[in-house]
Structures are given as structure tokens and as C-alpha cells.
Design a protein around this nucleic acid. Structure first.
Length: 572
DNA sequence: GCCGTTTTCGGCCCGACTGTTTTCAGTCG
């Protein structure tokens, strides 16, 4: 049973307790525990009660319940709650505007427990007969149902960033003096974003109207004095918040989150006799403002170093900020090379020269051309002879190009049985081998793990690319014992990739941090299929920052000669 | 249900907006 499955059970308990209108602090305890489990780097099912209790937010009771779930596959408390309310009732909570109180009301008075029943009741006008609900609320629920059909809810980081840029470009000319900053999960660099939050610092009330009337907005969800909220075409919710300049830091801090980070920070504020909100840090006794103009000032007043937004997940950053042990996070400018890109030889759009020139223009000093191997017939994958011909062309380009080292590499498929797609003699003649899985992704855990482990054991392999094969919002990570893969990579000296493609970002932050903690070298690759593809490296760097990595933890920040010496094939 | 630099009991983050109310409950982030 993986961490997310355990976290889901704890989260469902929290939801069900909320519908029951139980003690809110007990509900929060379950939510905190679910969060701790979901983001724990170690495999929860392998931990005993005392190890579980070391996790923040997990105490005696929940630790015992987790063990019960892992050992028996069920949790009695969870089952009892599900006997009171059908599991389908939980789906209603995901609808915009429907919370636990409404769900309870719907269930108890109209016996509604599924999305379909809710829709039928709304269409037939029965919802408005309930106390506290009117025609307007009924309309709202119908709209929420429609939106649910259209969009799953979350969106890729890269897409969110682009949309935010469009919105800001629309607003900036209307308020030349105001400063617009995207906050929330976008500023934290989370791999997917649920909605867009934008601050307008020093903006006027009229901006709210301009925002809700912007050409991308499909529907206005709310409009007040300090906040406007719209649904954009394509299913994004976007919020604009007006913030006075004197609260700039407090607002940035507050709206950047994460929620868990903010709760921990406000808790710390209270412990020191302060109150922290989006307007500033205030002395509880006198009401006097202590800080608020800058984020640095707020963290400083709480006895903390400023914490980079990527780390604000309450995963140890507050303790590190207090102890002065925050990492010096890697930056895009630290990257000197890229080990994974494609050309017209397979599914890339540009030539070797064009890709090398684009990489050089992107500030890189070495680039590995890693086109596909033969099993990917769809894209014209290279067999041994073609791979060596291609390598000769790459080396010819390298010989005549200034300012960048171009390496002859391959992205070699790992076949279902774990063997490599090209003969070892061929792979040995290349400068670098990136291995990856592209087919037979639905293997069971045992098969997939031994497949990847066998590939890692091959001396030809230098890098394992996009290790879990996940596609964000589309395809779950393959069943893989990542623990075993990480240990093997550490043992064999194979680097694990953080792939920068918007829908991969694989490894993700939690697993990259875990791999680093076990002594695995990481690389950040673009997987570019065209000249513009190197821009994505910034997103790979964001993942690395969220994984607490410093420049020295990432192999392709090294100068070329040093990098070359560190490759598995050049070590004995 | 968790947790401890006042505490093993008594706390537990905070405010805006909406709809259905006529002073507030529910939802959201």
C-alpha cells in the first residue's frame, strides 16, 4: 500500500468527520496526518508505530490506525464512518460551493448521495426547498456540475505561469504604478496548480472590475472591494487581490502559502505574542504593527531566515530557517550542461547544429544529443548502425562548433525484460547513455522493478531518464519500487534525471529529495525536442529547488571536464 | 486527535465574500 493510498483513507476520515460536524480540531488532526503521509519521503507501510510517531502530526492513535490499515487492508474507524455515509457523498465536496454542511443537509433531507442525484434534484428545483438554499444556490450548483464535467481541476505549472503572464499583461497598462505578482502554488513552483492567485500591490479598486471583465474570463465568481474571482476559459479559477503597499510583504507571505507553512508560521507568531495575517505581523498586546512591508522582515521578526517560496511546504524549512541551515538552492544559472535532447534524427524538430546553437544561446557549455533507440519505431528510433552514424555526425558538429561541447549520446529504451535496446558494444562507443522506459508501462510492481534494476546493472547506463514514466494529470507513475531503484542507482553510480518537460517533471520534488538523501547524483535535463525546449530547464530547476538541492548536488552544474570524469563510464 | 521554552490539559490560524439572513452560516483559500 503506497503513501498516497494511506493518505487518501486519512483524508476521507477527515471529510466524513466534517460532514458529521465533529470536533474541528480532530478533523484537522486527520488532515495534517494525511498531509504528512502524502509527503513523507519514506514508505509509510514499512514504518512501525514508534517510527510513525516521529512524523509531525501523527500521534499514538493515528499511528495505530495506520498500522491497522497496512496490516489488514482496512481501518475500522474508516469503515464505520463509511457505514454512516456512502463514499459517493465525498464526491459532492469537490464541487465548487458545496462543503460539508451542504453535503450533510443534502443527504439527510433529500437522501442525495451521488453527483447524479444532486444534478437531478437541482434540475427539478427541489434544492431550493431546503432551508438556507435558494434559487441562486441551485443555479450555482448546476454551474459547478457543468464545470466539473469540463475540467479536472488542476493544471500544469507551465500553463499556469503563461496564463498569469497574459492576465498581468492585460492589467499592467491600467495601473502603471502597481506591482503584479503571481503567488500561491505558482510562486512555490508546485508541479500542478489548482488556481491562479495574483496580487496587485498598490492597485486601485477599479482594477478588480477590469480583472473580472478581462477577455479570458468566462464567468465572474465574485467581486468585492479587495478581491475579484473569475473562471477563465479552459477551466482556471483566477483571483486578483488588492494589497496596500505597506502590507506588501505580509500579503506575499500569506498568499504564497502553503497552507501548512502558514499555519505553522502563525502558530509560531502566537507563541511569541504576535498575530500574523495578510496585513502584517502585529503585537497581540498593543495591536502595533511589527513587520509587514517585506517578507524578510516578517521572517526575521519571528526569528527565522527568509525562506524561499519553493520550500514553504512545512517539510522542515521552518526548523532549518531557525537553525540557519537552509540550503543555498540551485539556480538556473548554475546549470552548465544538458544531457537529454532530440533532433531530426528521431522525433526532434531541429538539426544537431541548431540544437547545439540554441543550447549555447541558453547559456550551456555542453549538450548531449540523445535521440531514441530502435524500439521506438513510431519516431524512427535508431538501430546500432544508425546510432553510430548519428554519433559520427554529432562529433563532426562538435569539431566545428565553438563555445559548446556536443556529446554523442542516445536515449536507449529499456525493453520489457530489462535488457537494453542496443548492443553493449554500440553503447560503449558513445559518450553517454541515457536509459528510459517507454513501453509496457502497465507491468506489475515486481516486474517493473526488476526490469529497471536490470537496466541499472548494465555498465553502459549513465543516467536513468524520467524514472517513473508519469505524465502529470494524465498517467500515474508506473508501479515501481522506487526505494529499490534509488538504492541501486546509488550503488551502481547511475544518475537519476529530473526531466523538465511540463507534464513529466520526473523525478518530482519528494522523490528527488529522497534520492539525494541516499547519495544519488541527480541531473536536470530539458528533453528538448526543438530549439525552444531549453527554456523548460527552468522548470526542472524549480523541481530541484523544491527538493532542497544545492548546485553541488546536480551533476550537470559541473564544468565539462569535471562532469565527464564523474560519469559512471569514466570511473572504475 | 495532536502537542509541550508558561502546559500531560487545554489549547489548536485567519479573513473575505456570498446568499439568505436581518445578524449570520457556509464556503473558500
Amino acid at each position: 500500500m503506497d503513501n498516497l493510498a494511506i493518505a487518501r483513507v486519512l483524508g476521507e476520515i477527515a471529510d466524513l468527520l466534517e460532514i458529521k460536524a465533529e470536533n474541528p480540531f480532530r478533523i484537522r488532526a486527520y488532515r495534517n496526518a494525511a498531509d504528512a503521509v502524502a509527503h513523507a519521503p519514506e514508505r509509510i507501510e514499512t514504518l512501525d508505530v514508534s517510527a510513525l510517531r516521529k512524523l509531525p502530526g501523527i500521534g499514538k492513535d493515528i499511528a495505530a490506525k495506520i498500522r491497522e490499515l497496512v496490516e489488514t487492508g482496512r481501518m475500522q474507524h474508516h469503515q464505520e464512518l463509511l457505514a454512516e455515509f456512502p463514499a459517493s457523498l465525498l464526491d459532492l465536496l469537490r464541487l465548487q460551493g458545496v462543503g460539508p454542511k451542504t453535503a450533510a443537509l443534502l443527504y439527510q433531507s433529500l437522501h442525495i448521495s451521488t453527483i447524479e442525484e444532486l444534478e437531478e434534484a437541482a434540475r427539478s428545483g427541489r434544492l431550493r426547498t431546503l432551508r438556507g438554499m435558494g434559487a441562486k444556490k441551485e443555479e450555482l450548483i448546476l454551474k459547478a456540475l457543468e464545470e466539473r464535467r469540463q475540467h479536472g481541476g488542476r493544471h500544469l505549472l507551465a500553463r499556469a505561469r503563461d496564463l498569469a503572464a497574459v492576465l498581468i499583461a492585460h492589467l499592467q497598462p491600467l495601473a502603471p504604478g502597481a506591482e503584479f505578482v503571481p503567488v500561491g502554488s505558482l510562486r512555490r513552483g508546485a508541479e500542478t496548480c489548482g488556481d491562479l492567485d495574483i496580487l496587485a500591490i498598490g492597485g486601485e479598486r477599479a482594477l478588480i472590475r477590469a480583472f473580472t471583465a478581462n477577455p479570458l474570463a468566462e464567468r465572474v465568481l465574485g467581486e468585492g472591494d479587495t478581491k475579484g474571482s473569475v473562471l477563465l476559459r479552459g477551466g482556471y479559477q483566477a483571483d486578483l487581490r488588492l494589497v496596500p503597499r505597506e502590507s506588501r510583504g505580509a500579503a506575499l507571505q500569506y498568499f504564497t502559502g502553503s497552507k501548512a507553512h502558514n499555519i505553522a508560521l502563525r502558530d509560531r507568531a502566537i507563541g511569541r505574542g504576535y498575530k500574523l495575517n495578510e496585513y502584517g505581523l502585529f503585537d497581540l498586546a498593543t495591536g502595533q504593527s511589527v513587520a509587514g512591508e517585506s517578507e524578510e522582515g516578517i521572517y526575521e521578526a519571528l526569528g527565522l531566515a527568509w525562506i524561499p517560496p519553493e520550500l514553504r511546504e512545512n517539510r522542515g524549512e521552518i526548523e532549518a530557517a531557525e537553525a540557519g541551515t537552509l540550503p543555498r538552492l540551485i539556480a538556473r544559472a548554475d546549470l552548465r550542461g544538458d544531457l537529454h535532447c532530440h533532433t531530426t534524427a528521431t522525433d526532434g524538430r531541429d538539426t544537431i547544429e541548431a540544437m547545439a546553437a540554441a543550447a549555447r544561446a541558453a547559456g550551456l557549455s555542453y549538450l548531449a544529443i540523445a535521440d531514441h533507440s530502435q524500439s521506438l519505431t513510431m519516431v524512427g528510433g535508431l538501430d546500432e548502425a544508425a546510432a553510430l552514424d548519428h554519433a559520427a555526425r554529432v562529433r563532426a558538429v562538435n569539431a566545428r562548433m565553438e563555445g559548446i561541447e556536443v556529446l554523442a549520446a542516445i536515449e536507449c529504451d529499456i525493453r520489457p525484460d530489462g535488457s537494453l535496446d542496443l548492443a553493449a558494444e554500440c553503447l560503449a562507443q558513445l559518450d553517454l547513455v541515457v536509459a528510459s522506459v517507454h513501453s509496457a508501462l502497465d507491468m506489475d510492481r515486481e516486474q517493473m522493478t526488476s526490469r529497471v534494476l536490470r537496466a541499472l546493472a548494465s555498465p553502459s547506463v549513465d543516467v536513468l531518464a524520467h524514472p517513473t514514466s508519469r505524465l502529470l494529470l494524465r498517467r500515474a507513475p508506473s508501479a515501481l519500487d522506487l526505494d529499490a531503484v534509488i538504492d541501486a542507482a546509488a550503488r551502481e553510480g547511475v544518475a537519476l534525471e529530473i526531466n523538465s518537460l511540463a507534464d513529466r517533471l520526473d523525478l518530482g520534488d519528494v522523490n528527488a529529495r529522497l534520492a539525494h538523501s541516499r547519495g544519488v547524483a541527480l541531473v536536470i535535463d530539458s528533453d528538448a525536442h526543438g530549439q525552444a525546449g531549453f527554456e523548460a530547464l527552468a522548470d526542472g530547476v524549480t523541481v530541484a529547488r523544491r527538493a532542497w538541492l544545492e548546485a553541488g548536488d546536480v551533476l550537470n552544474t559541473l564544468p565539462f571536464d569535471e562532469f565527464r570524469r564523474r560519469l559512471r563510464r569514466h570511473r572504475s
